[in-house]
Write a protein that binds this DNA or RNA. Sequence first.
RNA 1: GGGGUCGUGGUCUAGCUUGGUCUAAGAUUCGCGGCUCGGGUCCGCGAGGUCCCCGGUUCAAAUCCGGGCGACCCCA
Length: 481
Amino acid sequence: MHDLTDNQTEKFENFSEWFDKVLLEAEIVDDRYPVKGFSVYRGWGYSIVKRIYQMLEEKLEATDHQPMQFPVVIPEDTFQKEEDHIEGFSTEVFWITHAGENELDRRLLLRPTSETAIYPMFKIWIRSHADLPLRMHQTCNVYRYETKATRPLFRGREFLWNEAHTAHVDFEDAERQVNVGVEAYRSVYDALGLSYLILKRPDFDKFAGAVYSLAFDTWNPDGKVNQIGTVHQLGENFAKAFELTYEDDDGNRAHASTTCYGMGMGRTLAATIAHHGDDNGLVLPPVVAPRQVVIVPIPFKGKEDLVSQYSNEVKAILIDAGFRVALDDGDRLRPGEKYYKWEMFGVPIRAELGPREANARAVTLVRRDTKEKKKVQLDDLVEEVTAMAAEIQANITARSRERLEGELADASSLEELKNRMDERRIVRVNWCGDPSCAFEIKDQVAGEVRGTLWERHEKPTGDCLVCGDGGKYIAYVSRTY
RNA sequence: GGGGUCGUGGUCUAGCUUGGUCUAAGAUUCGCGGCUCGGGUCCGCGAGGUCCCCGGUUCAAAUCCGGGCGACCCCA
């Protein structure tokens, strides 16, 4: 196993600068759009994002979520039906108040999330228990007027996500759905080689209007945890506010129970870049790389035709086998420059082809993650590339997990917690569950209580580190985005 | 929410303190031509900037002042 900081000095020591550079040079997003908090996805970046949401959409549709598209505007009166929900979002909605010169009778808002757009329609569609469960999902932009500093991919005022909304006959069925949502997200994050914690957020930090909220938190090189997805059990809260009722098999009317979950594409992409990238740029997981193999010909004078013919032959073989391939046969750059360029773009495998390879009917393969070279025979090429892609995937996944393990630390006093926070770690502490103790932590140290591990109950090892009363939970504390 | 730093061709940086020699410099990038090509060659020619915006001070503003917009960092 390679040292984690190997070739990642810049990334860890000056994350911001590194990240901005990568976004610009690898053509991920361009933040120079002239409105604060809005940025443009460029070709390479959007190609990756598209593959991410397509993986998720496929997974959701395989578990009976119907794809839908709801309008981006919501009328004010509908938005205000669920009290906690309004309270949570009202300070950050964009309003449409005018059409041309005329003021609108009924103000419209740009969705900050779509519950209030979707439930009025669910109410129409749901008549009986036979209409349940009802599951939909959509990939769309949502709008939140963030007051904190915006940051490309991490926090924008417009962002791309996929949201799913489901309705069920009762709380128990909604509970089962929460698990389905978690598994869908897990499968996507795992495919991207990301490591994460699934935390149950403390009550004071749950989604506005939820019974409880789960969140996928990932580590980031600057020590601020990145929330890349959330899953919410809404119970009957929204069903009551929107009169979502159905007739059960005894002929009685009952409220549905609902769930929703959202995955932020920008943040998921940010995590993929931040976890795997190094000082030479992106390191992309083969599943989402817009190009999985780049062929760099090395055309010595007088041997151009030989090399060019061979390059095209190799390209055809790889494309035939289903790989996404780029052949960089422009003569503007030298091979070395091309290596740097494609490393910045994070292409997983590079194939170097010169007269030596052409004559030997061989290919020199270079892995992006470790830079290791391997010369293989043309006959074994497809098999070797397939194996190498799998090794890269395994290696970057392992590196990311190892890093997460290394980020975790324990603290048994506020003093110790403070020290661990200064090291920018994710810290486990014993907690009584009282919000005031969590607020005390926020006051005292530069971190917040993010929640408790969801997958299994962790037994506290002692008393609450703030009040000294009996510890009920192991809480995770960290800096956040 | 509070404090700080900053904004100069596509990118990065110098110039700003002490206004004038700035018709804004360098590197990189980009375009054309040549030479090359196994890890960022080199040469020639060329392109690219209302010095973030608005206002003020002044004979004179990239430079000083006010406001706005935008970016980054730290703290809560």
